[in-house]
Design a protein around this nucleic acid. Structure first.
Length: 738
DNA sequence: GCAAGGTC
């Protein structure tokens, strides 16, 4: 039998369909679908099916020596048990295995992982490799007609990457966590990709803090015909100059020149993952949420594979047929407009062979999905249609005006052809219509304005922008960038969007920048890439690269361990400041998030034991001290993050506690009133039921009820009710007075 | 309980 291995289930299915003349037979092996035809069977993996880790015995963070961790043997073990078992079974019966995983480095490694399992089951199995860059009939058939060899060097380079990442990540993560005392659930982490990313955010925040705003002035004037003009100098840095210009402005403006130009505004390139996340971020989706929804749309058959670096549609894609699927439904008008045009697709800068750009694969109705899913689907459809639309055209008008010798200008823009903007409303460009004017025309000056402004600091990174930046710097991959960002939130290194680093992040980045600077820079990824290329080319062995990396890490630890005490001090100080909620209103000391003996958490006063002020905090979830303060109590608002749930904005802990107490008191009051009703002599369970059905549930309800109406509703006598009411009133009064 | 990389 001939066994064929693909990287994912979907691809296995497509390959089987293409290679089998007829429909392949589906059989489950250990729960995994395999596709049979002739004497062949195709099976899909789920990416990596094994992973690297330390052998047992290295699990105790505090007890394992760092040096041992750095030099420990790294083992590979199955992470996808069922798939491994299926592969083992199929391998036993196969005399040939063809690796048909994705055509890239990780794909080669994933293929070798599968091959090793098959060889374990059948040592004499013959292996080969097919390479294709699109899952089309032509490409697949060509690839299978001339298979090549498995590239073990390329796979080794991927393996070196895995080991280096594990060793550096584990050793530094443990060191930072132990040294800061943050063990258990709230540990601090370090990694080749996450730490440089965090450093970007921290460095930007430092820039913002160090920013000194510069004052400047802008002069504008309002003219007849509703024409607003600005002084040509734009920003004027000297206040005296600005004032003197402003004061000398007279009553009449003269139009000096009018220039018109047409401007074409080209449609956007097809979506790769980075551009997709960036666009989704622009309409309010976090990177991780956008990818989660895209994943769902993909597995539900609505869009193509969402993890791609390609911004050029492959020739084999039938664009006209694809647009035609939207001839019915909400995109009808746009689809018809596109179909009636020349339909020349745009191309982005990056052309790779991994997967096509993201495009819609099936029509859908709004009712088919949840609102967020629809928003993302609509974005993909509109982007797709936009890439096949013509440019948007504008007439740009530049008007120069003089007021008492001072040059002013106005710029207008009028859209004359919407082009792609007709179907892609996400990036707006506003029109600015200027009145009809002629050169030499005189206009009265109706008003003038001198505005004092300040230069603004750079803005914080939003998630979309950060993903773009990571892409440019080579940090992470199309599949991992959004996960890395989620990780920074999970570790409480950042909060909000745009992202603001916490003091913990400052402290960790600072410690690393001082003692292990390479892990905080994108260069580490770059050097690792270079080493991997060397391994792939056969110039150096996997082991040599790993050993060199180990000795570099040893040198880093020489320094780290020498300074462990001072690193611990600064780290703990950073962590402490993230736990300050505000100042105690009783004694003025800091209010700090503390941990109780049984893992409970509370806000306590630093003045303890002299001051015993406390506030409770929820048992579960990560507590985040936000930068918003309560106006009434001056305390920072609290946010609780539970994995997989929406964050809970608890707000000011004092307000929250007061509300909770008020609610409790209200409930307790209600309860005693309920209890009181049952205590009235003559009211038994049956009568209680009757009263309850009539809406009388507490003694207070009874006291306030209209006796006659209640008698009618319950069938009880009015006399009885009246006597109970008397009792109820006294009981309620008594209860309230004590 | 650590990383980053595949995929669902």
């Amino acid at each position: 039998m001939h066994l064929i291995i693909a990287e994912k289930h979907n691809v296995a299915k497509r390959i089987a369909q293409i290679l089998a003349g007829s429909k392949p037979k589906v059989k489950r092996v250990h729960g995994i679908e395999a596709f049979y035809f002739d004497d062949k069977v195709v099976m899909g993996l789920s990416g990596h099916i094994v992973g690297v880790d330390y052998p047992p015995g290295y699990n105790n963070w505090q007890k394992v020596d760092y040096r041992d961790l750095i030099h420990a043997e790294v083992v590979t073990r199955p992470t996808q048990g069922k798939i491994v078992s299926a592969l083992h079974d199929l391998g036993k019966d196969a005399d040939r295995i063809t690796i048909a995983t994705d055509y890239d480095r990780e794909g080669e490694l994933i293929g070798v992982e599968a091959l090793r399992i098959a060889e374990d089951a059948n040592p004499t199995i013959k292996a080969d490799r097919v390479r294709f860059s699109a899952i089309t009939k032509g490409e697949i058939q060509d690839a299978f007609e001339s298979p090549g060899e498995v590239d073990f060097d390329l796979a080794s380079s991927g393996e070196a990457r895995q080991v280096v990442d594990l060793i550096w990540g584990a050793a530094l993560t443990r060191f930072i966590s132990i040294t800061s005392g943050r063990l258990g659930k709230g540990f601090l982490s370090v990694g080749r990709v996450q730490s440089p990313t965090l450093a970007l955010i921290v460095d930007r925040e430092k820039e913002i803090e160090a920013f000194k705003p510069q004052p400047y002035w802008e002069i504008s004037a309002c003219l007849e015909k509703d024409l607003r003009v600005k002084h040509e100098k734009g920003r004027i840095w000297e206040g005296d100059l600005a004032r003197s210009i402003f004061e000398e402005l007279g009553e009449v403006a003269t139009v000096v020149s009018i220039k018109e130009k047409t401007r074409t505004d080209r449609p956007p390139a097809p979506f790769d993952t980075t551009a997709f996340i960036s666009a989704a971020s622009g309409i309010g989706f976090s990177a991780a949420n956008a990818m989660r929804i895209a994943e769902w749309l993909y597995t539900s058959g609505f869009i193509s594979y969402p993890r791609t670096e390609n911004t050029v549609y492959p020739k084999t894609l039938d664009l006209r047929a694809l647009v035609s699927i939207f001839k019915k439904g909400p995109f009808r008008e746009d689809a018809e407009r596109v179909l009636s045009g020349p339909m020349v697709p745009t191309r982005g800068k990056r052309f790779s062979t991994d997967h096509p750009p993201i495009y819609p694969t099936a029509p859908a109705a709004k009712a088919d999905m949840k609102p967020d899913q629809w928003k993302i689907y609509e974005l993909v459809v509109r982007r797709f249609l936009a890439t096949l639309s013509g440019p948007s055209r504008w007439i740009v008008m530049n008007v120069r005006v003089e007021i008492d010798g001072q040059p002013f200008r106005a710029t207008g823009a009028r859209q004359i052809e919407a082009g792609w903007r007709a179907c892609y409303p996400y990036s707006k460009a506003a029109e600015e219509i200027l009145p009809q004017l002629s050169e030499g025309e005189k206009l009265r000056v109706l008003g003038k304005e001198l505005e004092e402004k300040e230069t603004q600091p750079p803005s914080r990174y939003g998630q979309g922008r950060l993903v773009k930046l990571m892409d440019e710097l080579g940090l992470g991959t199309k599949s991992t960038r959004h996960e890395i960002i989620s990780k920074l939130y999970a570790r409480a290194y950042v909060q909000g969007n745009p992202m603001k680093p916490t003091n913990t992040a400052y402290a960790v980045v600072e410690a690393l920048q001082q003692h292990s600077p390479n892990i905080t820079k994108p260069d580490m990824t770059r050097t690792l890439e270079e080493d991997m290329t060397k391994i792939a080319n056969g110039h150096v062995g996997e082991e040599a690269v790993i050993e060199e990396s180990r000795s570099m890490l040893d040198a880093v630890f020489d320094d780290l361990l020498r300074h462990q005490e001072e690193i611990g001090t600064t780290l703990r100080e950073g962590l402490r400041t993230d736990k300050i909620v505000g100042l105690c209103q009783i004694c003025g000391h800091e209010l700090i998030i503390r941990r109780g003996r049984r893992g409970s958490r509370f806000i306590g006063c630093a003045g303890y034991p002299d001051c015993t002020f406390t506030l409770p905090l929820p048992k579960f979830g990560m507590i985040v001290v936000t930068d918003k303060a309560c106006e009434e109590h001056g305390m920072q608002q609290i946010r609780i993050i539970n994995k997989g749930k929406r964050p809970w904005d608890l707000g000011c802990p004092k307000c929250n506690f007061d509300q909770w107490q008020a609610k409790k008191a209200e409930e307790a009051k209600k309860k005693t009133e309920v209890d009181l009703l049952a205590k009235i002599p003559g009211i038994g369970p049956k009568t209680l039921e009757k009263l309850g059905a009539a809406g009388v549930k507490t003694a207070l309800d009874l006291a306030g009820a209209e006796a006659e109406a209640l008698a009618e509703k319950t069938g009880l006598t009015k006399k009885k009710i009246s006597s109970w009411q008397l009792l109820a009133k006294t009981m309620v009064n008594e209860a309230q007075s004590c």
